[in-house]
Design a protein around this nucleic acid. Structure first.
Lengths: 195, 195
DNA sequence: GAATCGTCTTGGATGGCAGTCAAGATAAGG
DNA sequence: CCTTATCTTGACTGCCATCCAAGACGATTC
């Protein structure tokens, strides 16, 4: 019979650990922060973390879930803004999480939990982008490819902090997909517009 | 006075180590292959590697340099192929190096040597893409942004092996930048060509 | 041809890390 | 008060990159 000793303290403590880990993972990096540092920041013994989380990757997933949930909550408040502005805002909002983006990709190959999170996240991001592109007039036939380009560009912007200056330009070009071939088969014949 | 004991054997041995490291970094992963494994594969003692390379990151740079040089040599042979095909070929050629792409991004933040290599590589890639886009008729005003999108898309394709099926579609859409706003300010008014 | 001096190689540390184990605490339930 | 589930912890293991100090070995010098 489960006698819950500290009824909801459980969640609280877990959250404290996630908070400490989030700050360190984002600011310092995943590989660069030892579990001891997280424990110290959360004010617990290192091993206590292993009571709440299977391993460091599970903790990373918890951090990712929280960060994503917060971002989505913020995003829902401006769901009626113009599509381009939403995109721009999202990139700026996520900018601080560049290190998380890299580590997710790095660990996807070796940690199944991270791989699963990554796949879920891509589905979500693709759905959202598909909605945006559709509303921007991209035809169904090139929607998949446009969405994938969109995902890659956003990831790229986050992955390369030094590209911030040209960010606006890139997003404008991305969000306004005049890049709609009317008929792919006619592409071969169509003359180039440049010199 | 430098008395060279085994005159050119030096380069040979170094190359053997790089060969072993390349195979393991690409096939198994950087973080996943200990120095001992590289040493065993190269038939030397672990510490011998440290005679030829400062540390594991320096070895990674050597691997990256070789892989890039080989790819560029191959590429020069088809410099006269159509721009789209060159792009497609490049992505397929680099596909096998997905793990290297992730690790470069992961270590850029912490290893200055990797950061420097990464910056150089981006300059090179951007120059090449700029040439391609220019020849495809992208006007100067949106060239920078197009190039950046190009780099991000290629990186994205390499970073996400599961997107291989739609690769061709994505590259076609990318390489044929009908996404040329003739005048950004007129974008607001211009009717969409889609349904 | 023996001492010497760079070039290279290696066995054996060292210190940091993630994760394990088994021994406690603590408080609710009986 | 004693059992039991929940939680916490110190001590430990094993892996890893990297360092150190001792050698091996051939060319140079005398």
């Amino acid at each position: 019979m489960p006698r819950n000793r500290r009824p909801q303290n459980r969640e609280e403590k877990r959250d404290e650990i996630v908070t400490a880990a989030a700050k360190l993972f984002i600011g310092t990096g995943y590989d660069e922060t030892p579990m001891t540092a997280i424990a110290a920041a959360a004010g617990v013994a290192t091993n206590t973390i292993y009571w709440y989380f299977d391993d460091k990757d599970a903790l990373l997933v918890a951090v990712l879930d929280r960060v994503l949930a917060e971002a989505l909550a913020d995003a829902s408040e401006r769901a009626d803004a113009p599509w381009e502005d939403q995109l721009m805002w999202a990139v700026e909002r996520l900018d601080q999480y560049g290190r998380l983006v890299t580590v997710v990709h790095a660990r996807t190959a070796i940690a199944p939990v991270i791989d699963a999170w990554h796949a879920d996240f891509h589905r979500l991001a693709e759905d959202m982008l598909a909605g945006g592109f559709r509303s921007a007039g991209v035809p169904e036939e090139s929607l998949r490819a446009s969405v994938q380009i969109g995902v890659f560009v956003i990831e790229g912007l986050l992955l390369h902090p030094d590209t911030a200056p040209s960010r606006r330009e890139v997003i404008n070009l991305l969000a306004r997909p005049t890049h709609v071939h009317r008929d792919p088969r006619r592409d071969e014949a169509r003359p180039r517009s440049g010199s």
